[in-house]
Amino acid sequence: MRIGVVTFPGSLDDGDAARAARIAGAEVVRLWHGDPDLHGVDGVVLPGGFSYGDALRCGAIARFAPVMETIIDAARGGLPVLGICNGFQILCEAHLLPGALTRNQHLHFRNRDQWLRVEAAGTAWTNRFTAGQEILIPVKNGEGCFVADEKTLDALEAEGRIVARYIRGNPNGSQRDIAGITNEAGNVVGIMPHPEHAVEALTGPSLDGLGFFTSVLQALAGASADGQRAGGQQ
């Protein structure tokens, strides 16, 4: 399986996302913001960082990058896309996900090891977890406070689209303790904490982050098996 990791000017955790995907068993393809070609990848990670220096608003410029035009179309067609931190912000700016990420309520950048509860275990990026599973993953952001109008929040709850919530303390004031959400189809996931920093015992607080990357491989393996079956029936 080929997983693409996009580098925008100002991307910082792109190498870490690539490492995590590699450890999970993926073939990693580095994608460049100025190149609209996705080079045949089966899934895409939009990494953390400060794309374009966070000018205007986090993610506001990145959504117009040539590579994003292709990704937005492909995501609407079912391509698995994971946005981590700045990637989550980009997905919201691109309207692939609802709501917005705003300045942390306490106004500081905050980096700590954060407990989450996985709520939606059916998405392309979380199928290796069980609903209700508690995982420990680093959070590090200055603008990670998820906000949306009440109607949207209610809809996210009702449709089971809240992927993970902060537990044992909300690090940024996110509404309803939301740490990550997904689109209706479950192929696009945005998450504020950094699963790519919890994939090795030597450097992470846990190995819990690996599940996001193994999930997409499982989803893709399932999809290609389905595709082959479908092909056989024709």
Partner: peptide
């Protein structure tokens, strides 16, 4: 000192032991 050090990213680059 974590009120200070939590304002710094210690994870980026993935090699912090």
């Amino acid at each position: 000192k974590s009120w200070v050090t939590e304002q710094y990213d210690r994870y980026v680059l993935g090699n912090t032991v």
